[in-house]
Write a protein that binds this DNA or RNA. Structure first.
Lengths: 197, 197
DNA sequence: CCTACCGATCGGTAGG
DNA sequence: CCTACCGATCGGTAGG
């Protein structure tokens, strides 16, 4: 399937429905209705319902990966700056398209076979980058954490939790959110003020 | 519907399926098959598929609420102790039945009408308790946060993220997890080591 | 808890 | 992008 404007419109409409009702809870006819066409007409543009989900999830995975690449590209940056940068990047990708981000976070498991497995591996790799970054910070004495893997899980689930509550028309600007979340991430790895606390 | 042993078995089987495939992705016949009975036979025990989901979600909502009540019952405790207590309680409820906890977190939106609205209100109330606790801590000078509402959202989504990765047979004991998550929660509200950081 | 069955809807195809 | 249609499956009911 070639990438056309219409294809993008279909995926945008589908993302909105998948977010609201889930992939399984959305029928092909629901998707078509949102575009004012017949259910069968959708197949002039997409190979299958899975195909639509796969495109959305694949693209979002790439966006998160590319954003992380750019955030970590500054080799001179220290662990704290790097962690803050990847958090800001993650928040930016999420707020930039909250519906597709939501589908990526919640519906990737609805993919089947090799496609699902491949996304699972990419998600694991992303988590490992965060984990390794935390370990680096600990090794360099910049961070102090109880458990790098647990801290990474805490951090990434908090970040992905954005899709459950963020609204583009809400009171918080994306930039403010990115800064606050970067701050919260740094706190989770910070050396402690006072061991007596 | 009376609460019978069989009913609980049905809900346990359903929770496992709902977690794996989602509520919409699970058919009544899938549920029956897991119990080695016919699809239609399920209706001797439950009124509807929604009824099964509703029972699971309602019970888990009550468990989280009751656990929070107990955690916050000690009126002499300070903000930090209270926050740590509610986090430990939340982790304990989650790890105690990870499948039903997962259904509560991810599938409550599949409920319809008043039932969904009621759960939405209970979830909001729970989040408000955490938010108010953070505000209290700030007012008393025990905490320093950028934004209580954002910090509460960060914290609760990290807690609920447990259902996406926690495995009872994994390397982390529930008690260790509760302690580590309580520590991470405290870090998110802690006064900072050094403003120059 | 079973068999037999219901109308509705599902994802998808044929052929324009 | 349409009409017409496919077999399969959906949640649920009747009547034992």
């Amino acid at each position: 399937m070639v990438e056309t404007t219409r294809r993008r419109e279909i995926e945008a409409a589908a993302s909105s429905l998948f977010r609201e009702r889930g992939y399984s809870g959305t029928s092909v006819r629901d998707m078509a209705r949102a575009l004012d066409i017949q259910g069968a007409s959708l197949y002039a543009h997409v190979a299958s319902k899975q195909d639509v989900l796969g495109s959305i999830v694949d693209r979002m995975a790439s966006r998160y990966e590319t954003a992380a690449d750019l955030a970590l590209a500054d080799v001179a940056a220290g662990p704290a700056e790097r962690l803050a940068a990847i958090v800001r990047a993650h928040v930016a990708v999420t707020t930039d398209d909250i519906e597709q981000a939501s589908v990526f976070v919640h519906e990737w498991r609805a993919l089947s076979g090799e496609r699902r497995a491949a996304i699972g591996r990419r998600r694991d790799a992303y988590e490992h980058r965060v984990r390794d970054l935390i370990r680096d910070g600990v090794d360099q004495g910049a961070f102090a954490v109880v458990d790098p893997a647990l801290t990474a899980a805490w951090l990434l689930t908090a970040l992905n939790g954005l899709v459950t509550w963020y609204r583009p028309d809400g009171r918080i600007a994306p930039e403010t959110l990115a800064e606050t979340y970067a701050e919260l991430a740094l706190r989770s790895v910070a050396r402690q003020e006072d061991p007596r606390r």
